[in-house]
């Protein structure tokens, strides 16, 4: 019996056809995706990897809300020109806590994987208010209202809790103090700032990101997030140095 003869009979039975489609289409995903969760080499280890602070996470959510990923990637490929232009190529571990990942698929604007601390807070704020004030030929939309919008902090504990449910190791302490930590990160002189560095480490940047000391705005969150991109761990720089040494 030829395969066509077999098919001639198969296509007379709806259920067999359906089972065939499900079976045949499932194989690729099972072989390619399932092992990514089990093979330990898939994600490198980085002991110094820190978590996003509540303010940075809020900034990340604004980045998602505004669809920034449509034009900016956060994934430096292992190509010489990309490393020269943007810095060490991205490691899997760097987006280990990114639910969802924001690797992106298009660079209408430049890659942002290592944008953190390359520009000043003032530059970022001016750029968000009107990109053409600092980059005359830019085609990025203006986000001036980020400076006007107060940041919502009352649900930040819920955010951290949901993150913990999908595997990000936030402690009870972090969850309970999420709103205070967000306030503290943008107010260096406040008592809340001390609590933040205690929970997230001394390397955490505590600054008045938006230039307004009295208010906590969405601009604070956005700039805090942009300034931490590529700086959660130093693993990528070390990995590059090792590759360089072995050549």
């Amino acid at each position: 019996m030829s395969i066509f003869g077999f098919h001639y009979r198969l296509e007379r039975k709806a259920i067999s056809l359906i089972l065939g489609i499900v079976l045949v289409s499932s194989i690729g995903g099972l072989v390619e995706i399932a092992p990514l969760f089990t093979i330990s080499q898939t994600v490198e280890t980085a002991p110094d990897m820190r978590l996003y602070t509540p303010l940075e996470l809020a900034g990340r959510n604004i980045y998602i809300r505004e669809g920034c990923y449509a034009c900016h990637s956060q994934m430096i490929r292992t190509l010489r020109d990309e490393v020269d232009r943007y810095g060490p190529y991205s490691l899997a571990v760097e987006s280990k806590y990114d639910h969802p990942m924001l690797w992106g698929s298009k660079r209408t604007g430049p890659d942002l994987a290592r944008i953190g601390e390359k520009y000043s807070d003032q530059w970022h704020v001016a750029h968000m208010i009107n990109p053409r004030d600092v980059v005359p030929v830019s085609v990025m939309p203006a986000y001036d209202w980020l400076l006007a919008n107060e940041l919502r902090t009352d649900d930040l504990s819920l955010h951290l809790k949901a993150q913990r449910k999908v595997g990000v190791p936030y402690t009870d302490d972090m969850v309970a103090n999420a709103a205070a930590d967000a306030y503290g990160q943008a107010n260096p002189d406040s008592t809340q700032a001390d609590g933040l560095t205690k929970r997230y480490g001394k390397a955490t940047t505590v600054r008045i990101f938006d230039g307004q000391a009295d208010r906590l705005t969405e601009m604070d969150a956005m700039v805090a997030y942009l300034q931490v991109l590529g700086r959660l761990t130093t693993a990528a720089g070390k990995s590059m140095a090792q590759t360089g040494a072995s050549q």
């Binding site: 390619e32 995706i33 990514l36 969760f37 898939t42 994600v43 959510n61 899997a92 571990v93 760097e94 987006s95 280990k96 806590y97 990114d98 639910h99 969802p100 990942m101 690797w103 649900d155 819920l158 955010h159 809790k161 949901a162 993150q163 449910k165 999908v166 595997g167 990000v168």
Partner: peptide, 22 residues
Amino acid sequence: AMPLSFGSAKSYSAFSGVQDAM
């Protein structure tokens, strides 16, 4: 994905990083 709560539109993907990308 894991929603924040029943009264929130926001959710966090069950996967992260490289597994999420794939």
